[in-house]
Design a protein around this nucleic acid. Structure first.
Lengths: 229, 229
DNA sequence: TCAAAAGTGTTGCGATTACACCCATGC
DNA sequence: GCATGGGTGTAATCGCAACACTTTTGA
């Protein structure tokens, strides 16, 4: 290409990525929050995030936050929406591109001890007040996850590689905040071929050993609709 | 608030808005494209867009493009996605926040004569090659529109205030690129109370005068699913 | 009276829901 | 043998798809 002039030094808004990190453990859907040590919103809980560096893609920024600050790698990420209220950050004009992430808390280093009292999982039903416009971002992320799980197998990112049907069922009930018929759920999930029985059983329980399933990674493009019952 | 320091002068990527403007006329869904007069992609067709100005919100930038460049006001706008490939613009790092717009071409000043040969409606089935990553953006916009129209009454933005059932039916067939049963379509649209019969008839036709409908602006929150037949 | 498009109901099928009993295991 | 959760099938209902004839109008 010829005659291409680089951009003039326009003044551009700051560009940040904010992350809604969902985790699921013990029948509870949680979000990871950071307690800020600096103004603005000092001592408030907020979503983790970072400014975009030149040459960095959104996903890279997300990964940087997740691995550097939170010790997580290989995380499911999806872009949510971009937020542009002029006063959303009191320090100046800042655009936020929000992503949500699904992680398995039991495979992740973030514990109550690590990174002190800065970072913590919160049950999504017991969230503290959030700084910036992060409450809005969180609400959108939750709605997106609830919608997505009905037509795309995304919940597996929150579970161990092997899981029982009951664990998957509980996860769906928890995300959708609705009771789902156990038998109908099983049939739909199996019909859609989202998961594969491994033949292995979970052992050491006081009762019948349930089958262990794994996610079917090469699933067909059958447009699946998990209607709630 | 106290002790709040403004942002340092971080170097930030350029931030632009790109617009997929859909119009519907004569049973054809079209997109508005601009023929660039400057490098890069000189003489190529591209989506309209503009750089975000400080203090401007995405929607403001969209409205600025639509009214200034295209003479359109009061347009339906929805944010689509944000694009961040580092080399999507050869002039330098540029983030694009894509929106799509729905307009009624017959109520809009953009004609073949106006703005010369710069700007033109293209049948979405006969698109030229597009500059930048605009083909990808367009594809996403079309998919979003196709999905949205099934659960939200968004098509009315493309029609006149008063329209016949057949016109609405044709619009849906055209957007979805599928034949829809006429009677089932009528029933579903009416059951969902998306539209209201006005009692008026379209006259001057060679055959039976069809009822004119208008969009029901205060529609219930009934979760509607227009299954295709 | 003819052509062209608008208006209108019903039936059959497939999908979904609702629902209860037996099974395996550890204690 | 008992308590606990896992596994399984069917009948009834609902929603959707398929489908054809009559009506209105202008020419």
């Amino acid at each position: 290409m010829e005659n291409i002039q680089p951009f003039h030094s326009y003044k551009n808004p700051s560009l940040a990525v904010d992350l809604v990190v969902f985790g699921y453990k013990e029948r509870t859907l949680s979000v990871l929050l950071l307690n800020r040590k600096e103004e603005p919103f000092k001592d408030c809980w907020t979503l983790p995030g970072a400014f975009l560096q030149m040459e960095e893609r959104f996903r890279d920024t997300c990964s940087r936050v997740l691995s550097t600050k939170l010790g997580m790698n290989d995380v499911y990420l999806e872009q949510l929406y971009s937020f542009d209220e002029p006063d959303r950050d009191p320090r100046g004009r800042a655009i936020a591109v929000a992503y949500y992430a699904l992680v398995n808390p039991s495979q992740v280093a973030v514990s109550a001890g690590h990174m002190a009292n800065d970072v913590q999982w919160f049950d999504i039903k017991k969230l503290p007040e959030l700084g910036f416009d992060h409450a809005i971002i969180f609400e959108q992320a939750l709605k997106r996850l609830q919608a997505k799980i009905l037509y795309f197998p995304v919940g597996f990112e929150l579970l161990d590689d092997l899981f029982t049907m009951t664990e998957l069922h509980d996860l769906y009930e928890c995300i959708l905040d609705l009771p789902l018929d156990r038998r109908n759920f099983r049939r739909k999930i199996l019909d859609a071929e989202y998961i594969i029985a491994t033949g292995k059983k979970r052992e050491g329980l006081q009762n019948r050993h349930p089958e262990l399933y794994k996610f079917n990674k090469k699933l067909k493009e059958n447009s699946f609709q998990l209607n709630i019952s």
